[in-house]
Computed example of a mutant assay.
Amino acid sequence: MKEMRLIVDPPARGTWNMAVDEAILRGAVDLEMPTLRFYAWSEPTLSLGYFQKYNDRQQHEASVDCVCVRRASGGGAIMHHRELTYSFVAPVRDSRSEETTRWFDRFHETLIKVLANWQINAHLSGKPHASSQQEPFLCFQRRHEVDVIVDDNKICGSAQRRHQVAVLQHGSVILQQSPCAPELLGLEEITGQKISAEMLTDLWKDALKTTFQSTYIQMPLTDKEVESAQEIESVKFAHPDWTHKR
Rank of each mutant, 00 (worst) to 15 (best):
H129V: 07
S97P: 09
T85L: 04
A62G: 07
N117W: 02
E83K: 00
N55D: 14
A72E: 12
H108Y: 05
L138I: 05
F51S: 13
H108C: 05
L115R: 12
A90W: 10
R143Y: 11
L175Q: 02
L124C: 03
E145L: 00
I120M: 03
D147P: 02
T100G: 06
H144T: 07
V67C: 14
C156V: 09
V64D: 13
N55S: 15
L111N: 03
R142D: 15
Q169T: 12
C68K: 06
I112K: 08
H163G: 03
H123E: 14
R162G: 07
K154P: 00
W118K: 01
S132F: 09
S95G: 08
A116T: 03
H123V: 06
H60Y: 15
Y54C: 03
D56Y: 05
N153E: 14
I112W: 13
M79A: 09
T101F: 05
D151P: 08
G74A: 03
V167G: 04
V92Y: 10
R71Y: 14
Y50S: 01
Q160E: 15
R96S: 13
R57C: 12
V146E: 15
V146A: 12
Q164A: 03
S87Y: 06
E61K: 08
Q134N: 10
D65G: 07
A77I: 14
R93D: 08
L124D: 12
R70C: 08
R161N: 10
D65I: 05
H129I: 05
L138C: 09
C156P: 01
A77E: 15
A159K: 04
A72Y: 12
A130F: 14
G171R: 00
A72K: 11
S97E: 03
S87G: 03
F140V: 00
H60V: 04
E99T: 09
A159P: 00
